[in-house]
Amino acid sequence: MNQKDSQTLIFGCNALGREVAEALISNGVDVQLVDADAEAVEQLQQLGLPARREDALDDRVLRELGLGRRVRQIFCFFQDDADNVFLVLSARDLAAEGRLQIIAVADSLGGVDKLKAAGADKVIDPYETTAHKIHSQITRPLLAELSDALLFSHDDFSVTEVVLTEPSRFIGRQLSDVVHAVEDDVIILGMTDYEMDQTFHFRGKYRDHHLDAGDVLVVIGPHDAVRGFRRWVNQGGGGA
């Protein structure tokens, strides 16, 4: 991802905000933490994190923070679902055109649906997530350990997205055609066609897909191999 001209806002200077901020900063993302509570802000500032004291429920403040312009991504981590819903709605309103990714946490049972309805791209229910983790640890311990390895980035191995851009050698071909054309140590799991819908298409399904620019391939493999693959794919050159 190109991170030079984009910024990520994290609303809520709590344990969650801190963890995410640290993870993103280590990935080289330009992060800004925002909270109305002076004490919480100060705590994070002492840890060396870029935190600011602002009232996020005010549209003028949001605009000042860059929503609708530089900000491409926001995290809504306020304690209260109502605050998060308000924030999501304001942000969607301000960034009506242009892509803004909104990730929120829900605290109450109905919160997930409300935040989704408000326009959040991803809503995480911490309780449910924890419970599922524990449950899979009980019922499928082997898979649970593997899950961590597959889901979360490591130094050397990850699941990644590769966006097809002109003049990719894959453009104009069928998905079933290209999955075996890969020579690197990379496996293509499937793809998403953003023009059609947001759903992920597993490559093993019977329906085939015509690849064009803007399609996203989901690939898995060691970092070096994936990097090489990304370069190779988006070169022109037709067939392999």
Binding site: E19, V20, N27, I103, V105, D121, I124, T129, E161, V216
Partner: peptide, 15 residues
């Protein structure tokens, strides 16, 4: 767990 999920999701929502 949630923080890691949120951070991972941010970079590659589809995957």
């Amino acid at each position: 767990l949630v923080a890691r999920m949120a951070a991972e999701f941010a970079g590659k929502p589809v995957a």
